[in-house]
């Protein structure tokens, strides 16, 4: 899949991202179900606010974690998230 990093990424309608104290983890909630996110997945998802472009999500993660070259990892996760219908992309 070729993902355009100029597109805006948002969590799919009807889904909800939230932190669960009892499980000490971020989860993605959907009709009658839930997926527990690992740390990197949750850090990416938290920044997919429906306003940032994918390229800005990458920049923000690199800044917050003082790293570079995160784009391939982020894109690979977003590709998976798209397949699972966790997120949506739209052109500005």
């Amino acid at each position: 899949m070729n993902i355009d990093t100029n597109t805006v990424v948002s969590i799919s309608p009807g889904l909800r991202l939230q932190f669960e104290k009892a499980q000490d983890t971020w989860v993605l909630l959907y009709p009658e179900g839930m997926v527990k996110l690992n740390q990197s997945a949750s850090e990416i998802m938290q920044r997919c606010d429906g306003e940032r472009k994918l390229s800005d999500v990458v920049k923000l993660l690199e800044k917050d974690f003082e790293q570079t070259g995160l784009e391939p990892d982020v894109l690979s996760f977003v590709e998976h998230a798209l397949e699972q219908k966790w997120v949506e992309l739209r052109n500005e």
């Binding site: 669960e20 104290k21 009892a22 989860v27 909630l29 839930m34």
Partner: peptide, 8 residues
């Protein structure tokens, strides 16, 4: 409080 997160 116990951790239930889905309610039907």
């Amino acid at each position: 409080e116990l951790g239930s997160v889905q309610v039907g």
